[in-house]
Design a protein around this nucleic acid. Structure first.
Lengths: 203, 203, 203, 203
DNA sequence: TATGAATGAGTCTTCATTCAT
DNA sequence: CATGAATGAAGACTCATTCAT
């Protein structure tokens, strides 16, 4: 009744509050009392639902992993790869649309990847359930295009990196230096994809 | 007498110890007592040299900024841009050589950029003294190549991102997933630069 | 209907569970949630029957006091005193039989006497309803034997102590150091009573 | 300089305060903040010297064990056994003198033996370092007296219990029911020892 | 100047108790 | 009348910072 995707309403309130607080102050910099306040529950309530503060972080990770929200970003990229056609605006703009959500998730993802350094089991889960699946999903169509001779024969993993990293880098940089509003996101993504396609297409 | 670059020997010991400890455990996850132990001084000594724990972090940032060690990475990239020649192996390998040091600095840089989120004055210093200078330094030769028509006319900032992000992404990913040892670093960098050059060179 | 000795069935379940849990973990070391689980009721249910956690302890004490289960130990001792005859095996063994129950109650009694230190009203009740009655009950036949000249004229209270303490001491020690299984309980009690009788009988 | 018997002055202050507080409120019923206040130090200071609250209890036990203060009680008892003479007043009164200290230690010993139930390593130490040594020390002269035929041939361990338990029982009871001040301690001990000797001497 | 014991505010966590269902 | 989620006061413990030596 008060459950959704395995989380009770209270759990959802706490998770959402924690995401907000963690994103702003970092994991160690946040206190459970802040999270409780943000969630509108008593501090003790947190510990009826999550055994430790770290448990909250792990639940956030699990939810991100389970929802596969993240992987949505790879679908449009796959289409770009398969078409190999920078002019296919509709695809590009679908990425842009997605990116609004991704933008909001960037601080959360930074948090998870950063904190994962200090928690091996989280790191492993991130690698196995997020990083590797994305790499695999993107590598596959690249390899196919290489086999037809349409793409050059660089290491597929490196090609994936050179496709993915600039997009992510652009988003992160924009959070650091928000000034350059002169160019809209859609145009930026189009140019980044263009550069990659030219770099990758044979001749 | 016991000073070098504005740091006494004791200060240097503390800074070095703090870099080591912060890199492994994060800023909030480290204690001044650990730093003192690693530095081989008493805990109280730290506070004769740095007013607060955060002061240590700021000093680390200042040192990184002042030493410009970081910017060393942009020099070889500039040469790559200016030559526009993926075959110029010597340049590429000089990057590789540098990257050994950069590799070691990646955790420190992750730390500084991550913690900067929570300390506006640090964030500003990072942006003004590190991020923007690197972008500028790299944008300049790109713009020159564009003016001669040798490079395509993409937004120079985006071109910089698409050059820089894959290299950084490769280094970070390698720390997360160290397995793919099959390819050596030199070859990886060469391919990433190749892709960029093809994507960027007109025709 | 569901009452017995002033306790409803639910109350009895809770009391029994509390005795079990308190005996193993002590009063402060036990949680109401453990007691609820052991009793097979909800945590809230406990507080419909007992106003506070301490109220449970007080009810246990009341039950022990009301049931006089404890005082059963003094009856056989009285017989030993009255016969003044260490050879009366049947009496001794009836003590032994009782002691099986007493053994099980030792942890509970330790608990009550120990916790009573911290709760004056409980201490008073223990003294008035348990300790003093036992002393009186045992002193009486001793005094009678003294008046006939059969027992020496030591202070009756001290004689009671020197009768009672070794038996209790033996039981407690056995819980601490269970190894000395070489002697059975029956024999042990017989010897302890013998020593006392020899020490106490005139000539 | 500020050390004595392996304890610094601060540690001694904390230990003494803890003994006082624990004796009055029990282990679980005491708070580290109360102990700090009683010791006249900051709460944090406690944890520079004892890693946990339980660590304080263990240190108390260690100190009791190391000081062998407790075992002092067995020396006069040994003399009583060896003389086998209840009239040897001087010995008896030396016990009394000791007992003033023992009296003060009774609450502490009750604490240690009670809490030991919940901490196996403490229980073992109490048994090995306190209980067994006392039993052994007292059993030895008893056995000697038995071999000469002066004492009856009861189990030596039980004889020890029937010597020791009444003395301890008297002290504990006096704390519970302090009223019976009519008899002084010296006389009480003399009578208890008398009873035992008569019970134990052959004929 | 360097030390490290002492500090105490602040943290995570527990748990007896309440109350809407 | 029973339930168990929610509460929040209180506890053990941490750690950046101070200061007498």
């Amino acid at each position: 009744m008060d459950k959704a995707l395995g989380l009770t309403k209270t759990q959802k309130k706490i998770i959402d509050a924690a995401i907000k607080v963690f994103s702003v102050k970092g994991f160690e910099g946040s206190t459970t009392s802040e999270i409780a306040q943000e969630a509108g529950v008593a501090e003790g309530t947190i510990f009826r639902h999550f055994s430790t503060k770290k448990g909250i972080l792990q639940s956030i990770l699990l939810q991100v992993v389970d929802n596969y929200q993240l992987l949505d970003i790879s679908d449009p990229l796959v289409e770009v790869i398969e078409r190999g056609d920078s002019q296919s605006q509709s695809k590009v703009s679908s990425i842009i649309t997605q990116s609004q959500e991704v933008m909001q998730q960037v601080p959360l993802l930074k948090l998870l990847f950063y904190e994962a350094q200090f928690h091996p089991e989280m790191q492993q889960m991130l690698v196995e359930r997020i990083t590797k699946p994305i790499l695999e999903q993107i590598k596959e169509p690249i390899v196919k295009q290489q086999s037809t001779g349409y793409y050059r024969n660089y290491n597929a993993c490196l090609m994936t990196i050179s496709l993915f990293a600039p997009l992510l880098g652009y988003l992160v940089l924009k959070q650091f230096i928000p000034e350059q509003e002169n160019m809209d996101e859609e145009e930026a993504f189009k140019q980044l994809l263009d550069i990659w396609l030219y770099g990758v297409i044979n001749q």
